[in-house]
């Protein structure tokens, strides 16, 4: 269960204006809910995820996850509760390590690794069975360096790493955006499968309106750091990609009107 209470993130670039990338967001995600997050570029989706994962500090507000107030926890402490998959396949896996070694690091998520042999037989067998279940054949490549694999394969391994121990929350940030359509489709299927089987609580950012319409129990549209649309249940199931495209257009028109109004005001008074 994830609770955001009036979460705000401000950025102040030198000389620039203060940007409220996340602007007083309150959000309750019950355990086991699969939330899809959409929004235009720069609307604050990644910052929201970063604030939850601990890479970005909140300027104000609170975050609770699985009964803990994690607002002041460091990123690596939060990682004990959170699994992440990034947009860039290279960010989520260590390229010079083998697939199995990457999984070995994931098998220690949130606990002291200790001095046991990293790639013992038990891990190898479990890795082979889990990986083979997602992509048959991939279990043959446990000993290869993960840098030699395709982006799609790396994302599959990252997914498995993030969910190796059941996370209280799975954060996915456009994790199929860097992949070709076929690979993206495979990764999305794998993601949906893992979330369903594990009854995981998940927050998935995507730019694909088709994914947004077809996946998840709930849809959130973020705009200028705020939640503009939040639908679940039957209303979510009825949503089509076209509905979402219309929503985006409406927001864009409103922005243009805002900008036009601001220009007019500036012309009049400055």
């Amino acid at each position: 269960m994830l609770d955001l209470d009036n979460a705000t993130v401000q950025f102040q670039s030198p000389g620039g204006p203060v940007v409220r990338a996340v602007d007083g967001v309150s959000l309750h995600v019950p355990a086991g809910q699969f939330v899809v997050v959409i929004g235009t570029n720069g609307s604050g989706k990644s910052t929201l995820q970063g604030a939850i994962a601990g890479t970005v500090r909140l300027s104000s507000g609170h975050i609770r996850l699985a009964g803990h107030d994690i607002t002041d926890w460091s990123q690596h402490a939060r990682a004990g509760l959170i699994g992440r998959v990034f947009q860039d396949p290279r960010a989520g896996t260590a390229g010079s390590l083998t697939v199995l070694e990457n999984l070995a690091v994931a098998a220690c998520r949130g606990r002291f690794p200790g001095f046991g042999w990293a790639t013992d037989r038990r891990l190898r067998e479990e890795a082979a069975s889990r990986l083979g279940r997602i992509v048959p054949g991939l279990e043959q490549r446990l000993e290869q360096s993960i840098g030699s694999m395709s982006g799609g394969q790396r994302q599959i391994v990252t997914l498995l790493m993030a969910t190796w121990h059941r996370p209280e929350l799975l954060l996915l940030d456009e994790h199929t955006a860097a992949l070709d359509p076929a690979a993206a489709d495979r990764v999305v299927q794998a993601t949906a499968g893992l979330i369903r089987e594990g009854r995981l609580t998940a927050l998935m950012v995507t730019h694909s309106l088709a994914q947004a319409a077809s996946l998840g129990d709930r849809l959130i549209l973020v705009h200028r750091g705020r939640i503009e649309l939040d639908v679940e249940g039957p209303a979510k199931r009825r949503l089509t990609p076209d509905d979402l495209a219309d929503r985006f257009d409406a927001l864009r028109r409103a922005d243009q009107l805002d900008d036009a109004a601001a220009r007019t005001l500036a012309d009049l008074y400055v």
Partner: peptide, 25 residues
């Protein structure tokens, strides 16, 4: 090749990954 040593190599190679898995890089 121990778990701690492997985590160290991972942290040296890709800090984002190691931190996301709970390692203090």
């Amino acid at each position: 090749r121990t778990r701690l040593g492997t985590a160290m190599r991972a942290g040296g190679d890709t800090p984002t990954m190691a931190r996301a898995l709970g390692r203090d890089t």
